[in-house]
């Protein structure tokens, strides 16, 4: 049985293993929800990279977007609000042969879970975190989120938001993420490229996705983003330049950049954790049988 389990050096031989596809659960998102584009892009990216479904784990928190793992046929962990990232980290460390993808919303990742988000990036854990950022709390029927813009009226801010939003991109850059991108669920092809790039990237990959809520956010709509987004790669942006990446990350208004802001190569947490050099933890010996000499230190 053990050999069927993912190892980091596994090279596909023999008959091709089944790839990730749709599960038999139909998405329960509102018709027209931006998250349909995200699940399509994740599926496309995994198919393109030919990663067998048995070696993929999609981990989410709580919120509309966090239902995503149910709609694909890989392994999944639908965790509690804000905790997708530490669950995903634990999975990676138990078996770093797996492809681990975190998914969730802006409330999940930048509100209740923001501490984990920052620390996972500074550790450069090799996982891909895709946030469906709709600037609103959807599943709880329309309260302000950490990325709601100043002045936005919501159920919890009927007179308008009076605090500045978090900027996930510059936060990721400052926290040490080694792959930082922004996509738009209105452009599934580009989004799939960004997600695939993140999965392939050796280190923490962050893809923030403008994924409009068609029910509760009447400001940041598909049209809002269609009229404003421009592609970084067409604008001469150099994704190896951190200073340029910061400058682009704070652009907001009539022109909002999407694409790859920054990419760099650094050792991952898994590279530096010496215990994992012996292979995925789940294949290593457990227990202390025969290790009685360990007791000598207590004499």
């Amino acid at each position: 049985m053990a050999e069927s389990s993912a190892t980091p050096t596994a090279t596909p031989t023999g008959p091709a293993l089944p790839l990730v596809g749709k599960s038999d659960t139909k998405p329960t998102w509102c018709p027209g929800c931006g998250d349909f584009g995200v699940v399509a892009a994740v599926e496309m990216a995994l198919k393109r990279l030919q990663i067998p479904s048995q070696n993929v784990v999609i981990v989410s928190g709580i919120g509309c977007s966090s239902n995503l793992p149910h709609f694909l046929n890989s392994y999944g962990f639908h965790a509690i609000h804000g905790r997708a990232v530490p669950v995903a980290e634990g999975i990676r460390w138990a078996n770093h042969g797996l492809t681990v993808i975190g998914t969730g919303g802006d409330g999940d990742g930048f509100g209740i879970g923001v501490g984990h988000f920052i620390h996972a990036m500074r550790r450069n854990v090799d996982l891909t975190y895709v946030t469906m950022d709709n600037q609103i709390y959807g599943l709880t029927t329309g309260q302000a989120s950490p990325t709601s813009r100043m002045g936005q009226k919501t159920k919890s801010t009927p007179w308008g938001v009076i605090e500045e939003p978090i900027d996930p991109i510059s936060l990721a850059l400052a926290s040490g993420a080694t792959y930082v991108a922004r996509g738009f669920s209105g452009d599934v092809k580009q989004l799939a490229d960004l997600v695939a790039g993140g999965i392939q990237h050796h280190g923490f990959s962050f893809v923030d996705v403008f994924s409009p809520c068609v029910t509760y956010n009447k400001v940041n709509t598909f049209d809002f983003f269609r009229q404003r987004v421009y592609k970084l790669e067409s604008a001469g942006h150099d994704p190896t330049n951190l200073v340029q990446a910061f400058a682009r990350s704070v652009e907001w208004g009539d022109k909002i950049p999407v694409g790859l802001f920054y990419r760099t190569e650094k050792p991952t947490y898994e590279d530096l954790e010496e215990v994992l050099a012996a292979g995925p933890l789940l294949h290593q010996k457990a227990g202390l049988k025969g290790r009685e000499a360990l007791l000598d230190e207590f004499v």
Partner: peptide
Amino acid sequence: GIVVKQAEDELASINMAIGASFGGV
């Protein structure tokens, strides 16, 4: 051969442990 992780808080600690357990250790 035991991975020891000092986490950012106790929320992360237990969620990491649950993730690792789900992952097979």
